[in-house]
C-alpha cells in the first residue's frame, strides 16, 4: 500500500505577531510500499507537523493523505507512530504495554501475550518483559515503544526523531538495531530527523524540506545496500549534498525571512 501525500498546507497563528504563519505549503510526495524514507530539513521547518498530519493527529488546512485508497482523517492503527521521547504507560510492565494495542482490538489474553512476547523478541527485549518502564534505560524504552507500535501490524511506521535523546553510542546502536528490525518486517517507514548522518545511514530515500514555509526542496535516492559504512566515500558524498542544501536554506532564511528566526517553533510545542 503506497502512501500518497498531496498538497499539504498548514499554518499557525503566531502569538507574538498576531497573524498566520505558514508552516508548510504544498508538500507532496509518494512513498511506495516497503520504502524507508528519511525526512530532513532545517530545524523548526515543520517536520514534526508534517508527521503528525500524516498520522492523523493533526489536520492539514488543505491537502490529503491517502494510504492506499483510504484517506487518513484521524489516528488509525494502520499508521504507527514513534515519538521523540519513548511513550509507554508507566503503570504497565513492558509486555503489558506491548499488549495494549491488541487489548484495544479485543484480542484474547493468551493470544495477545504470545504476540507481545514475539514482538519483544523481535526488538531483543524479551528478557525485560516484566520490568516497569522506569526500570529500563532510554534506548530500551524506545525499543519497547517500537514493539508496542509494531505489534498491531501497521502499514506505515512514522518516526519522529526517535533516537534524538539518546547518547551518541546508544544512538548508533539503536539505528543498527532498528535497521535489523526493519529488514525483517519491511514496513513503509517515514523517519524524521535533523541528523544528516542518521538520514544517509538509514534511508532508501531522503526528502529534504526547505526552511519555513516548508515544501519539498530535494529528493535523493541512497542506492547503497545495507549494512552501510558510516564513513564510506559514497555516503559522504550524499551527506555533503544534503549539508550544502541545508546551508543554502539557512542562508535563505537569514536574508529573506529574517523575522522568522525569532518565532518560537510552533510545530514542536
Amino acid at each position: 500500500m503506497e502512501l500518497r501525500v498531496s498538497g499539504l498546507h498548514k499554518s499557525f497563528s503566531s502569538a507574538s505577531e498576531g497573524e498566520r504563519v505558514d508552516a508548510l505549503i504544498d508538500v507532496s510526495f509518494v512513498v511506495p510500499e516497503g520504502r524507508f524514507v528519511c525526512v530532513i530539513g532545517p530545524s523548526g521547518c515543520g517536520k514534526t507537523t508534517l508527521l503528525r498530519m500524516i498520522s492523523g493527529l493533526e489536520k492539514p488546512d488543505r491537502g490529503t493523505i491517502l494510504l492506499g485508497d483510504r484517506e487518513i482523517t484521524g489516528p488509525v492503527r494502520e499508521v504507527g507512530y514513534i515519538f521523540q521521547e519513548p511513550v509507554l504507560l508507566p503503570w504497565r510492565t513492558i509486555v503489558r504495554n506491548v499488549e495494549f494495542g491488541l487489548e484495544m482490538a479485543g484480542m484474547a489474553k493468551q493470544e495477545r501475550r504470545e504476540k507481545a512476547l514475539a514482538a519483544l523478541e523481535l526488538v531483543e527485549l524479551r528478557d525485560f518483559a516484566d520490568f516497569y518502564p522506569k526500570e529500563i534505560s532510554g534506548g530500551m524504552k524506545q525499543k519497547a515503544a517500537l514493539a508496542m507500535a509494531l505489534v498491531v501490524e501497521p502499514k506505515v511506521l512514522l518516526m519522529d526523531e526517535p533516537f534524538v535523546s539518546l547518547d551518541c553510542q546508544t544512538r548508533n546502536y539503536m539505528q543498527a538495531a532498528f535497521l535489523g528490525v526493519w529488514e525483517k518486517t519491511r514496513k513503509t517507514v517515514i523517519f524524521v530527523t535533523h541528523n544528516v548522518e542518521e538520514a544517509v545511514f538509514l534511508g532508501d530515500e531522503i526528502i529534504c524540506l526547505t526552511s519555513r514555509p516548508a515544501e519539498v526542496g530535494k529528493r535523493l535516492r541512497v542506492g547503497i545496500p545495507h549494512p552501510r559504512d558510516r564513513t564510506s566515500p559514497e555516503l559522504n558524498l550524499i551527506r555533503k549534498e544534503i549539508l550544502l542544501f541545508l546551508a543554502a536554506e539557512r542562508e535563505k532564511t537569514r536574508s529573506v525571512n529574517g523575522m522568522f528566526t525569532h518565532v518560537h517553533d510552533l510545530s514542536e510545542v
Partner: peptide
C-alpha cells in the same frame, strides 16, 4: 503523547478513560 499514542493504538473513549 500518552493520549495520542493510545488513540493511534485504537483506544476508544471508554478505554482511554479507564485504561489511560
Amino acid at each position: 503523547r500518552l493520549i495520542e499514542s493510545s488513540l493511534i493504538l485504537g483506544a476508544g473513549k471508554g478505554a482511554l478513560f479507564m485504561k489511560v
